[in-house]
Design a protein around this nucleic acid. Sequence first.
DNA 1: GACACGTCTGACAACGTTGTCAATGTGCAC
DNA 2: GTGCACATTGACAACGTTGTCAGACGTGTC
Lengths: 368, 368
Amino acid sequence: MRRRHPRAGDVGYDGAKPGRQAQVNRPTIKDVARRANVSLKTVSRVINNETSVRDDTRDRVQRAIDELNYAPDQAARNLRSATSHAIGLVYDNPNPYYVISVQNGVLAACHDQGFGLQIHPCDSTVPDLADELRDLVQRTRLAGLVLAPPMSERMELIRYLAANGIRFVRIISAAEDPDDGYPCVYVDDRDAAYDITEHLIQLGHQRIGFLWGGAAHRSSPERFKGYESALKDYDIPLDKKLVIPGDYSFDDGFRGARRLFALRDRPTAIFGSNDEIAAGVLAAAKANGIDVPYELSIAGFEDSPFSKQSWPALTTAKQATEDIARHAALRLIAELKPSGSGVAPVNRGFSPQLVIRDSTARAHKPAT
Amino acid sequence: MRRRHPRAGDVGYDGAKPGRQAQVNRPTIKDVARRANVSLKTVSRVINNETSVRDDTRDRVQRAIDELNYAPDQAARNLRSATSHAIGLVYDNPNPYYVISVQNGVLAACHDQGFGLQIHPCDSTVPDLADELRDLVQRTRLAGLVLAPPMSERMELIRYLAANGIRFVRIISAAEDPDDGYPCVYVDDRDAAYDITEHLIQLGHQRIGFLWGGAAHRSSPERFKGYESALKDYDIPLDKKLVIPGDYSFDDGFRGARRLFALRDRPTAIFGSNDEIAAGVLAAAKANGIDVPYELSIAGFEDSPFSKQSWPALTTAKQATEDIARHAALRLIAELKPSGSGVAPVNRGFSPQLVIRDSTARAHKPAT
DNA sequence: GACACGTCTGACAACGTTGTCAATGTGCAC
DNA sequence: GTGCACATTGACAACGTTGTCAGACGTGTC
């Protein structure tokens, strides 16, 4: 019965001519100089926004640049100035939403400042990561690196990079400026976790489960500290049976939730260390026929798009990941070019904001 | 009651010295030449794997390279050879899972072939996209571009790039090699959509709703054609009321599903053009108290991670996105360096595979 | 009018590599 | 031994830009 549409086999192709790229005689600094009737160097000065060029000269050169639609050749520039106008972004994160946000933030900053970006996903567990990064920087003459967690939190790596004269900015989880001498942009996970826990407490929950994220990420203990600290402030004893170790994954959320459900005195709310964990909890609740939020409140962390799309939509904490990444890159670039008019090269903190949706609700009167 | 942990203010930082990067006297081709007691050019030949270097000479040079831990300077290389060993990846896709997969696939190929990668997310709706891409290629001397949908499907753009001597490979949706003279790697969406529809039919479904994806993507009509073609092969009349236009989004899935639910003769299965749409359908079903899969079967497309994580897990079609992207990049690079021992520069097709999960089940006997 | 000083500009070399082309060595046929 | 083809190697220039340093010019002072 079934008739597939026809399928062509692989077909040899030999379209455009091989060999060198047809560079359509792109104008060089030389052409601009000739047209503006100045020397090469003066054009160079205008391009690089150096001082000490008379206004009328600058205008003349600029006009020539515009007319010729000239753009400096990056390769030549990189070679001569011994540093590319490009930075690297180093990450090892399984969450595509996070990675894309970081990329876009950094890219925005790069675009803004006329820098290029080299992405470098990597495996944070390989032993010679430090060398890998040094080679990367030196081979491509990267001007600096933006380090995302967990690389940004490995001090031996940080020290190695610094010792090798490599500039970088870390995106890290911390309650305050670490002030360890290395530049960073920090996310106050603890604070936000406090807010989420407090929200659950204020809904009347007393038994609140906590599912840890990955041990490799500093954000995980930070979030736990926020949870712990809120319980303490509201005089709720911490029940260790309600705290389950695990990873930042759906599966660990699912498994962790099942362990909590099996408890004699089951929690009325569960705080998953990120949205994926919370999604796992949600799935486990459904599998066990537990109604959310009526019988169980669930909160996540991160405000991933699917936290909006689950059913019910997840209460979570919204990280301005793109902003954070953008700021990190700007901070790096600001340090790179002291002349730059950009951001001051100063550490800065960001606090995720509580987002209340439908997965959390008032607690039932406990059975007691 | 509430006591937040202390928060430090922004703190000025002035760590490493500003100015030029501390280049620790990286070895150059000159050092290698001196050590191996050969000329610069010979070293260059070894590096570039050119023929006509005697084996013992090659060994000597290679040893020197290893001993000095020499790596060629990209900037100089790019400048001299008038083409960087780097390609660009151009995409405009809201789905991070897709983008990351494509990035990783292309990166793998680049790494393999000693190429760099410049990512270039863009807005496919801006009018001067063509110029933007040309400038990108020329300014950074990109050797070529990998174009993801929907850019890869806009023929006026394709023709412009080709006319400007820019090399590229398209990742496109097509039932067969388009054979339009421009290189591509194609994904047979139609075939896979046929499989999904057939799967539903074989479960006994006769009234199958179809939710379109974005009009800007060619994959959307392709998937529809697969749906249409399967219905035809099984002699099921196409009911236009069951076909709903929309975008590749959760919201359109939700809305589309509600329109279908409102029908007098409600479908017993819905095929969403991608997993996000299907997730929207799932949410709508839950909101309307419709049991999935007992009362309604739902199928998606793409095998996004959350298709596994929804409840019930979605039946879908798995695209080997990373492989496809890797192959696209290899195909591009193969064309770039005729000397390369890599893949033959030949168009190639990939078919997504049906993945059956829990959101589809045998249809109930219709009320008729 | 000479001088010093600051502002602005240009000549030239250099960055590290590869393309061009010529020079040298090697093996073989005569 | 000579000549020739071919394999192998090297000298040199060039890619497009910026750093260095010196020169030209203008302005104010004595």
